[in-house]
Structures are given as structure tokens and as C-alpha cells.
Design a protein around this nucleic acid. Structure first.
Lengths: 337, 337
DNA sequence: CTGAAAGCGCTAACAG
DNA sequence: CTGTTAGCGCTTTCAG
């Protein structure tokens, strides 16, 4: 159990060949006779050989490591995103170096340092605070891709963005078509994507000649709860609510129920992200689905091209969004206008 | 930006000393004159030197890597645990190699392979399936610590366990004292800890001369919802419900509300784990708090002693549990007996 | 206190 | 197709 691992040298000796040839055989290099390769593989197997990644990195003068910094894991949507990126990285042969720590200034500085020492090829940023000094400076010394909003604050960074405006458009059109007019919005705080969604909601409402109604919160359940509370305690009640994300929508749902309102009979409710619970048989929340796999693939491919080719100047790609209609939406009780 | 990093050699040349001395100075080895050390540090800093971890591992013939395999991130409790372990590992100077992938047989085999190639010193298992072949075999080739239940299935593994029985005892005594007699339990599925909690609930009920009432589910919100549904659709309604974890308790809460029952007036509700939402001003769920920091510290220390010393035979340590009384519990409406 | 030398295990030319 | 020869950047004896 504490026995040292077999080395390439050990395998080489056992088959009476050179280290180099064994190395080639095991890595699938074409210049090896098929029969030899099999012999070598069998012996490696028998000796329980495992390549030493540290030695490989050193010899190649570059590592396969790519950092994955996750700013926020309390939203299930980010958990899913993180898993997708992790998966994609491995599938493409990279070594993910995951950071789970809530990213404040100190911890992101430490994380940056770690990635530098690991000689990481690049880094993927997920739900990371927008303003972090350490992150920005990390991005200066390493190819970095940010997965998140289209908004401006990350101009320096390559970005995989969601077309938030398009998602909001789909939601609003859907609600308009069903006849809703008093549509309220529970906004989601400081993140760039939240701001985009709110802006687009406002634009759509005004365009339709309606008065936007926005209550502010953050991207968590409590904010959704309080948002619903506010919406039904002041002014004319909305017939539909668009929450900035699913977690908030569930918070709102909770408050609506306790107010004795049912969804969708009394109020329609729409979220954003399509977290797993949204599809649950119990809640069945209409929402906008993000293509998580596509985001992950784009992010990894972008890192790759940033690493290989000359750096394109902060590329920016967008992922499609699709409205998923479930049972939380219905036409309003009375025809309004 | 693509410029190679400065090496020890570079720094050495710049201060006109040997690599060896620079290495010692930078690592804080005592055998260096203080003045020299400062000179060296300053120069390293100026040259923007970062130690190459791969080279270090190779030279030391051992890496600082410790695997952290997380089986399940959909429960916020596991997210917290994972962050605590990650933190603790770094604080003690280790390099966590985190695996986010839902651990089925194939992915855990891949993960084991990766850790072997990384020459990981050990591995910490979190919310991992109990039965995985790959995990068991990993544990045979690497010091492994399992954070989870006291139950039997992991006899081969060092374990940091929660004293589930004690937690359940605290809950039940609390409920008994308030006068509850018809206490139902929503059980949590296949995990070892769930089984322990259920067993202890049964024992406590019988000891008190009462009839246990158990509905079965898994450790997720839906199960809690359905559990509550069942409890109030058949037989005499309970005055208190003990759900196997907080996520289930919230699911149950949701169903109770929609049945028009209020907590704690009509039913008392208790969970387990103390996830962040339990303390929320809105829900205020009574629950049993696990000492996450203590678990993380124990796990890391155990890995350390497993790595250094001769392997104690599958040690087993237990973390304390504490009942947190919040607003979801009250005496029953009518005195029963 | 400091330096010289010898690897750690692997890959990458360069010859055969 | 296969072997030889140099390192990759760092730590570690072993001598001064």
C-alpha cells in the first residue's frame, strides 16, 4: 500500500525496451508496432503502472490544468453549470483545478496564486463577483473565460454569455399573448445578468405601452418571498410575476400560497434558469432554460483557442435560451387592458 | 503574458547564489542568514517568481494533493461540508483535487485513476454512494476518510461520523417534553445516516411506549412533500413530524401549508443538518446542527495521521450534534396521552 | 551558512 | 520502428 509506483523505467526493463518506446506506446503515439504496443500495455497493466502527472507536466513544460473558480454554489443552477464545465474539461483531457470557496478578495487572491503555481493553462470563471481585483489580475496573466452575463463589466475577459434579453423577450411575449397586462418583475440584485433582465423587462413593458413595476432583491429565495409580499400589499395586484431567477420564483411562490393565492389561477409565475426543481411534478414552473452543455463546451473551446492561437481580443459568444412552458402560467382571470 | 515563469535558477543568478540556497530561503528553511533570505525574497518577488508545483512534487517524490470526492451537491448541507473540507485542506497546506461529478460507477473509477496519477496522498469522501466498487478499491490503494454515517457498511474506511442517534434523542426528548405523543417520522432513503436516524426514532418511540409511524422517502424535498401528504391523508394525524433532514422538512412544510395546516400551531416540524435556510427569518426550522468545521478538521487530521504514521485500523471518530430550537416547534394543541 | 551534484519520472529531439 | 541523450525545475544529500 505504501509501495512506490512502477515507473516507465520498470516497464521498459520488463519488456526489454527503452523508456522512450514504452512512453510512446502508452500514449498512443503512432510510431510503435501494434504488437509491441500490446505487449507493453499488458506489462504496464501487470505492473500496475500509472503515469506520474507531475513528471509529465515538467517534461512537457506545461500542465494540463485548467482552473475552475466557482463563486457561488448556493444556487442549484450554478452547481449544474459547474458540473458541466468540470465534465467537459475532463472529456477534453484537461485536469480541472476546482475552487469551491466563496470568492471574496482574499480567497480569490489565494486561488490565483495557486493556479499560477500549478502553471494552469487557463481559468474558467463561474458566478464570480464582478469586481474582484484578484480575478481581474488573474485574467491578465492567464487566459480566462467568464461564463455569465453579456454586460459590460468584463470587457477584458472572454465571455460566454446568455442572451438574457432574448429570454426576457420570450417570457414577455408569452405573457402578453395570454392576455396579461399587469406584469410585475422581481429583480435580482447586483449581478450583470440580473441587471440585463430587468432592463429588458422595462423596455418590453414600455414598448407595449404598459407601466413597468419592479421590486428589488437579490438572487435568493428570501428576495422572492419579500418581492411577492410587496407586490400584493401595495397598489393594484399583478396578474403575472416574472422573477429574475428560479430560486426567487420559488420564494415568491411560497409567499403567494401563504397569502391564499394560487398559481396559476390567481397569478402566473415565471422564473429563469430552469433549475432541476422547476420541472418537479409538484411545482412545475415555467421558466427559461439555459443550455448548460453548450456553455461548457464553448467555454472549454474558447480556453483552448486562447491557449493555442494568438489571443483574439476578448471574444464573446452567446448561448441560446428557450422558454419552457409549464403549469405556473395561465391567462389572467379577467380580460384586462 | 506567454512569457515563461522565472525559475529558481534565474533568481539564484540574480542574487549571485546557488539554486539550493534560494530554494531554502524561499521555503523558510532555517539554515539561511536572515539578511540573505530577505535579499532573496525581494529578488524573487521582483522577478515574479512562482514555485513550480509539478517540479516540487517530482523532486520530493510526493505530492501535496488530497482528493475530495463529492457524491452529491444538490443538498446545500453537502455544499457546506465540501467548502469546509476544501478550506481546511488548504489551510493545512494541501492541494485539494476536487471532484464534482455525481459519482456513479464509471465516474468514480475515472476519479480514482486521476488521483492515482496525481499521486494523491489521500482522499476524502463526502456523500458518496456506499456501495461503489471503485471507491472501495480506491480506499485500498490510498488512505481514505469517509465523512458520513456511523453505520457499518464502510468498515474498511476511516470514518468521521455524526452521532445520529444522539441527535435523534435530543429531538425526541424535546418533543416529548412539550407533550407530543403522536410523532411521525419521514425517513430518508438508502444512506446509512438516514437508516440510523429512523432506527433511533423507532427505538425512542417504543421506549416511551408509543407506536412509531414512519413514511419512507429519499433525502430530497419531494419526499418530504409526499411524506406529509401521506401522514395527513391516512390514519390519525400526527402532532409533530421529524423529517430525516432539512431539505425534506421544507418539502413537508410546503405540503402542510397547502393543506391549510400551520406550523407550529397545527403541527410541529423538526429537521436535521441545519442548512442555511433553516435559520431564515421566514422559515425558522428547528433542527439538529452538525459541526461542519469539526468534521473537516477531523477528516484532514485523520488523513494526515494515516499518511504519516502506520495505519491505525480504520479509526472512527464522532462529531457532536446540537439541537437548535426555532419557531417550527410548539406544544401540541390538546393535551394527549 | 552556502555550494555542488545527483536525481525525481517523463517527454522530445535526434540518430539509427 | 526503436534507442540515446538531454533536459523540465526543484529538493536533497554531502561537502565545505
Amino acid at each position: 500500500m505504501i509501495r512506490a509506483f512502477a515507473t516507465l523505467e520498470d516497464v521498459a526493463r520488463a519488456v526489454n525496451m527503452s523508456r522512450a518506446q514504452v512512453s510512446r506506446a502508452l500514449r498512443g503515439d503512432p510510431g510503435v508496432r501494434e504488437q509491441t504496443r500490446e505487449l507493453i500495455k499488458a506489462m504496464a497493466d501487470q505492473l500496475n503502472y500509472r503515469p506520474n502527472l507531475a513528471a509529465r507536466s515538467l517534461a512537457e513544460s506545461r500542465s494540463a490544468t485548467i482552473g475552475l473558480i466557482i463563486g457561488e454554489l448556493s444556487n442549484p443552477f450554478h452547481v449544474q453549470q459547474a458540473q458541466a464545465v468540470d465534465d467537459e474539461l475532463r472529456q477534453q483531457g484537461y485536469e480541472p483545478a476546482v475552487s469551491l470557496r466563496a470568492v471574496n478578495e482574499a480567497s480569490s487572491a489565494a486561488e490565483a496564486e495557486r493556479l499560477l503555481r500549478l502553471r494552469a493553462r487557463g481559468v474558467i470563471l463561474l458566478a464570480t463577483p464582478r469586481s474582484s481585483e484578484a480575478i481581474i489580475s488573474l485574467a491578465r496573466s492567464l487566459p480566462a473565460v467568464y461564463i455569465g452575463s453579456t454586460s459590460a463589466s468584463h470587457r477584458q475577459l472572454a465571455t460566454i454569455a446568455t442572451d438574457d434579453a432574448d429570454g426576457v423577450r420570450q417570457i414577455m411575449q408569452h405573457l402578453f399573448q395570454l392576455g396579461h397586462r399587469r406584469i410585475a418583475h422581481i429583480a435580482g440584485g447586483q449581478e450583470a445578468s440580473a441587471a440585463d433582465r430587468t432592463a429588458c423587462y422595462r423596455a418590453m413593458m414600455e414598448e407595449a405601452g404598459l407601466v413597468p413595476r419592479v421590486v428589488h432583491g437579490a438572487h435568493d429565495a428570501i428576495s422572492g418571498w419579500k418581492g411577492a409580499e410587496t407586490l400584493f400589499s401595495e397598489g393594484p395586484p399583478p396578474t403575472a410575476i416574472f422573477a429574475s431567477n428560479d430560486v426567487m420564483a420559488f420564494g415568491a411562490l411560497d409567499r403567494l400560497k401563504s397569502l391564499g393565492l394560487s398559481v396559476p389561477e390567481d397569478v402566473s409565475l415565471v422564473g429563469f434558469d430552469d433549475i432541476p426543481d422547476a420541472a418537479s411534478e409538484l411545482f412545475s414552473l415555467s421558466t427559461v432554460r439555459q443550455d448548460i452543455r453548450a456553455q461548457a463546451e464553448l467555454a472549454v473551446n474558447m480556453i483552448k483557442s486562447l491557449t493555442d492561437g494568438p489571443s483574439l481580443s476578448a471574444p464573446r459568444q452567446t448561448t441560446p435560451l428557450r422558454l419552457i412552458v409549464r403549469r405556473s402560467v395561465a391567462p389572467p382571470r379577467e380580460r384586462l387592458d
